[in-house]
Amino acid sequence: MHRIKRVFRNVHIVLWVLFGLLVALQLSQDRPSSEHWLTMTTGIMLTTLYVFYSHFILLKQFSGKKKRRPYFLRLGLIILTGNLPFLLFHHVKFDTFFLFFNYYIISLISMVPVFVFLSWLARVTENLVINTFKKEQLEKQAVEAELYYLKSQINPHFLFNTLNNIHTLVYKQALAAPEAVLQLASLMRYMIYESNSPLVPLSREMTYLQDYMSLQQLKYKNSPVVDLQVEGLTDSCHIAPLLFIHLLENAYKHSPARLEPGEVKVNMKITGDTLTFMVQNPVSTNPGRKVDEPGGIGLPNVRKRLALLYPGKHSLEANNSGGTFTVKLKIQGLKLMAHEKEADLLYHR
């Protein structure tokens, strides 16, 4: 806001300086008044500044108010007294009232209404820009608040279940217990601190997903139930944090209680500035469990965040067929790292 007001202030200064120079140049070349161009320029500048900013401030004082009578009374006073500085500095000696009245009417008609209108136009323009900026700021704050709310909707049951699983490992003095604690600490650190950034390296987001999968694996005794495939360089671009966790969480949540090794398939592919993320899992035969439960935070959450973060640059497809649920997310226009952009430009030369 202060930056916008500073810009308007600088614009006012520049325009008034240019106007003053133009008036001085014109009067210095006008033969009848060339000898008095300095005093005449002073009178014109004082008149125009007085009329312009008196009305400019008056409009601010009565902005949004329904009291029109005080406004018009003050405006009338500005109009009637606006050209007095010009007459005061005028080189003509007003020996008679008639001569003074003629100059008064001529200067009043030729100067005052113009700058009353210009001050109104300047105030309307400034209000329009400031109100537009305020609206954009409020919308931005609303978007940020909604994004914060959506990011915070990570299933708390995962944390409780993980702690219970780690407790069991510790009780059994299993060798995997210390590693599980480190993975949980890494996961929580990312969720609480690192995910506050608008963008994170995709490689860091993938580490978070791998920690999540490792902790989920504590529920299964057999080999890893998730088959993770990554194509492309994950450290070549940045992504909004916590975009994929709900899709992966849904895959665990809506799969059968017993999963065979590699039965949940996760594929990440990076091609240029386009990312494709796909999750495929078997659907539980339990009729009480649906892929999109009422009030669920999986796909609706992801759709809302994508609409806010990547409008017009993403697609999210979900398909439930043949006992398999597939979600495919595609994001275009990812922010590449600087060295990757340079390499891409060299490649296309």
Rank of each mutant, 00 (worst) to 15 (best):
T207M: 06
P282N: 09
Q141S: 11
K304H: 13
L27C: 06
K60F: 13
P287R: 09
L215I: 13
C237K: 00
I78R: 05
Q183C: 03
K134Y: 12
S203I: 03
E194M: 05
K313F: 07
E340N: 03
T132K: 07
R349D: 06
Y104F: 15
T271H: 10
L169Q: 15
N83V: 05
L75Q: 05
L275T: 05
K221L: 13
Q29M: 14
H36Q: 11
F94N: 04
V116L: 09
N196Y: 05
L309T: 08
A338C: 00
R68H: 14
L187M: 14
S197W: 01
H12Q: 06
L121K: 10
I130T: 11
K60Y: 14
E293R: 02
K290L: 13
H36C: 05
L346D: 08
F94Y: 14
V200E: 09
E205R: 01
L218I: 14
E342W: 07
D273E: 15
D235Q: 14
E194V: 07
F244Q: 03
I154T: 09
V266H: 06
M191P: 00
M268Y: 11
V116I: 07
I270E: 02
D211C: 10
L27T: 07
L309A: 03
S107Q: 10
A176C: 09
A185I: 06
L46P: 03
L147I: 13
I239Y: 04
M191N: 02
F52E: 00
L259N: 03
Y212F: 15
Y104G: 01
K140Q: 14
T324G: 04
V327P: 00
L308G: 04
P241Q: 02
P287N: 04
L58Y: 05
L306K: 05
A174E: 15
F158C: 04
K67N: 14
L87D: 03
A318L: 10
Y103R: 02
M278E: 06
H2V: 15
S28H: 12
M40W: 04
M206I: 14
Y171H: 11
Q173A: 13
E260W: 04
L138H: 10
N222Q: 11
L247W: 01
P198Q: 08
P294G: 06
V11P: 01
Y53A: 00
L138Y: 07
G20D: 05
V283D: 09
H339S: 11
L15Q: 08
Q153S: 10
Q280I: 13
F158T: 02
E249R: 01
A343M: 05
A122F: 03
L27Y: 13
A185W: 00
V327N: 03
G288D: 15
N250F: 01
D95C: 02
